Structures are given as structure tokens and as C-alpha cells.
Amino acid sequence: MSKKDELRNYPYEGVCCHRRMSRQARAAQFAPFAALEGYEEAVAEASRYIEEKPEFSEEQRQELDRIWQDVCRRGLEHSRLRITYFQEDLRKRGGTWRTEIIQCRKIDRDRRYLITQDGQKIPLDCICQVSPE
């Protein structure tokens, strides 16, 4: 009998100085891992679509000011309004256009904000359309 055959027939009793590892712990050694942590989130954030903030012309600003004066004159300041506005993104430069029906609480013409019933402040310079609901 050769040495190879002797070793092959030798009974294996395990390593005596270590406890036997559970199946879950052994499987965890071979589980995949993310070498670049946060990479997927960064790619998703970079590919998220945003638009540039629009610059209104002087005529458009004057038209919007006339609309706000009309809203205040007609007593619609505390009513429901349908507005289309540009909401700036908190993470990237730019944002998205939103159309909402809001309950207006106050129009602060000095600071140029529309304040909704739930406390949201929308800059008047970002609103492009206003109509009573």
C-alpha cells in the first residue's frame, strides 16, 4: 500500500482546536458582496431626470404679478388654487415642474412666497400658472 492510499483511508476526525461551523456561517463566507458600497445608489441618483430652473422674461413676470393682484382683489387669497410651479431639487441643481391644487393660507408679497394651509412655502417667482379651483 502506498502512502497515498494510507492517507486516503485515514479517518478524518476534524480539527480539535476549533468548534464546528454552522451551515449558515459557512454559507456566509461565499455570499456575494458589494465591492463599491453605494455605487448603485450613486448611479440611480445621477440618472434621475431633472430640469433647469426657468428664467422668466419681464413680460411674464408682469403678467404673473397681474394674476396675483387679481387673486388678492377677488378675495381668493384664502381659497383653493390650481398652481403650476417649479420645485427645486434638494440634492441636485435644477428640479421638476409640479401642478397641484392647494389651499392657500397667505400670499406674502414682500418676501414673494405663497404659503399653503399645511405650511409649505412656494416662491412666487417659481409659479408660472394660477387659476381658482
Rank of each mutant, 00 (worst) to 15 (best):
W68Y: 01
I102C: 01
R105E: 11
E88P: 14
L64N: 15
R82Q: 13
D89Y: 11
C128W: 14
E100C: 03
I83P: 00
Q87P: 04
G38I: 13
P32I: 00
K121H: 13
I102Y: 03
H78W: 07
G75A: 04
R98K: 15
V43P: 00
A44V: 13
E41N: 07
D110I: 08
P123G: 07
L81H: 02
A27D: 01
R73T: 12
L124T: 08
E37V: 11
Q117H: 12
D70S: 15
Q24H: 08
R26I: 00
P123D: 05
E58D: 04
Q87A: 10
C128T: 15
D110L: 12
A34M: 09
D110P: 05
E51G: 05
Y85A: 02
I107Y: 02
P32N: 01
E40N: 06
S57A: 06
A31P: 06
Q24L: 11
D118G: 09
R109G: 04
E88D: 14
D110V: 08
G94Q: 14
S22M: 01
C126G: 01
I50K: 05
Q120P: 03
E59L: 15
D125G: 11
I127L: 00
Q24E: 11
K106Y: 15
Y39R: 03
E59V: 14
D118M: 10
R66E: 07
G38P: 10
D65T: 09
E41V: 11
I127P: 00
T99W: 04
A27M: 02
I101M: 11
S22F: 00
Q24V: 05
K121P: 07
R80E: 11
S47F: 15
L36W: 06
I83V: 04
G119K: 04
Q60A: 08
E45A: 07
G38A: 06
R73G: 03
Y113N: 14
E52I: 15
A35P: 04
G95Q: 12
C104G: 08
R23L: 00
D89L: 04
E37H: 08
E52L: 15
D65I: 05
D110M: 07
Q69V: 06
E41M: 11
G94R: 12
E55G: 01
R48V: 12
I115F: 12
E41C: 06
Q117P: 08
D89E: 10
L64V: 14
E77A: 15
A34N: 09
I127S: 01
A42D: 13
I101R: 12
F86T: 08
T116R: 01
D65W: 05
G95N: 09
A46G: 07
Y49T: 07
C104P: 08
C128K: 14
V43Q: 02
A27P: 02
E59S: 15
Y85L: 02
I107A: 03
A46K: 09
P54N: 06
E77L: 10
I101Q: 13
Q24K: 12
T116V: 02
D65Q: 03
Y49D: 02
Q87D: 07
G75N: 04
Y85D: 04
L81F: 08
Y85M: 02
W68D: 00
Q87H: 09
L81S: 04
E100I: 03
R111F: 14
T99V: 12
S47H: 14
S47R: 12
Q60T: 09
T116I: 05
D125S: 08
I101C: 14
I50T: 10
A34P: 05
A46H: 10
E55Q: 12
D89A: 05
